[in-house]
Design a protein around this nucleic acid. Structure first.
Lengths: 259, 259
DNA sequence: TAGTGGTCTAGACCACGGG
DNA sequence: CCGTGGTCTAGACCACTAC
């Protein structure tokens, strides 16, 4: 039978281009190789640059290409498998959980976070920033919101902690350390698509608005939400893996070429 | 200190537009309301339509807007929480797992799938199609690959099964039923960003290339990968939830407005 | 400074949905 | 049929990187 169906519908040019380029990438290019520049590619295919760019955008979204202003377009390596859901429920910061503490502040969280934590609107919480690196590249930025009630031992005044911890990273570690005193009763995770805010984009070495996978994790203890993590992963380079296996298989999972 | 930093860098017009529109959506519009058309909006903001569209694309990606050709642009409801990772490891098709069997064929799988299943290149496998509906809207399309070795009781000839099961859905159910005879030893999950193939796009009521969340699940039994599921979720409308809680909270999780 | 990708424009035409 | 969003064009200029 075959799903060939004879193209009764008009296929957009950029979509056809995407397919052609995708096949070319598979057969005629190697990882890291740089493509001809956009103006030349557009000319070669006889389309406007905007149209060519639409096709390139698709391929970048799919993790096939990497584009850098001032440099060029290169063939991207297969996506990195990034472990997210160690089935074993653990507090963030336990052992070496691939995250690197950056700093920590005490401030009022966004409204949506306050709601999730069931704290008062203007109640300040610890905001711990962490970053995650894989293969030498930054892959994720995290904001961890910890209500002061979850880490009562910490001095409320930032000054007190700062004395012993001049760098923000140490303060972040202090919050994470205190958190582990609580007994973790459970956690909850959600994944959705988002676009990188300016700050995250900078940290992830992308432009603002770049597609990201947002992983929201709620940590429960003492019968309430004791902490909330919002982690932002580069969607173009990451494949989030859950479960036991570290997850290195299936090169182009989503591509699944026509049967 | 405040991260205000005085805009030393030039902010793209479309990004600023996105922010302005986003705030307008929060304060001046209600879910389901239709926005002015693109030409008028562009004129109102004094930009070209292409620029305005760039902003709208961002907002659509974030699940704030829904655009339909021939109809208009409407304010989207908050994303639907879609449960994915019932911690309890179960075969697909168990009970009512929110998926609806569509049909089933016996054919050679894509190369990447054959690799993951460790079957020979041209070895045919059962390909079960299922779809998932939430709130009356299609949210996901799945292809489930089942090597014949995993369901030996099924006749290899499609004809035999067809006699008792004229509709494809029944054949799909037959494969799922046979699968449950195996003892499930474990499973493995990965989530990544992809773009909808033409076929998936049609089923999800989107255009080809629309952003989707691709969930790849491997089912292990008898010491090997006994089945492989590739599920394609609409990225604009879905929030994938893992863990015990069904997951209805945090309205605009990823948005987290500037602190 | 030269070359790259990123942004933006002003227009045209097309495909689709609903009266 | 009309109005909508989707596609496409041919240009211009900007921001960044590397030499």
């Amino acid at each position: 039978m075959g799903t060939t169906q004879l193209e009764s519908v008009t296929e957009p040019k950029y979509w056809h281009l995407r397919t052609v380029l995708s096949e070319a990438l598979d057969s005629e290019f190697t990882v890291g190789e740089i493509l001809p520049n956009e103006r030349e590619l557009a000319a070669r295919f006889g389309v406007a640059r905007a149209t060519l760019r639409q096709a390139l955008e698709q391929l970048e979204l799919e993790g096939r290409l990497e584009r850098r202003r001032g440099v060029g377009t290169t063939v991207a390596p297969p996506r990195t498998g990034v472990a997210v859901g160690t089935e074993q429920q653990l507090w963030p910061g336990t052992d070496d959980d691939a995250w690197q503490p950056v700093d920590s502040t005490l401030a009022a969280p966004p409204a949506a976070v306050a709601t999730a934590l069931a704290t008062a609107r203007d109640q300040a919480v610890h905001i711990v920033r962490r970053s995650r690196v894989s293969d030498g590249r930054p892959v994720a930025a995290e904001l961890l919101y910890v209500p002061v009630a979850s880490v009562p031992a910490l001095a409320s005044e930032p000054g007190a902690a700062t004395v012993h911890a001049p760098t923000g990273a140490a303060r972040a570690r202090a919050v994470l350390g205190e958190l582990q005193r609580l007994e973790l009763q459970g956690q909850d995770r959600a994944v959705e698509l988002g676009s990188a805010r300016a700050e995250d984009a900078r940290e992830l070495d992308r432009l603002p608005g770049a597609p990201v996978l947002v992983v929201t994790t709620r940590f429960f203890a003492e019968g309430r939400t004791a902490a909330l993590s919002v982690a932002t992963y580069r969607a173009d380079t990451c494949r989030l893996t859950f479960g036991a296996s570290g997850g290195v298989e299936i090169q182009h999972g989503p591509e699944r070429p026509a049967s």
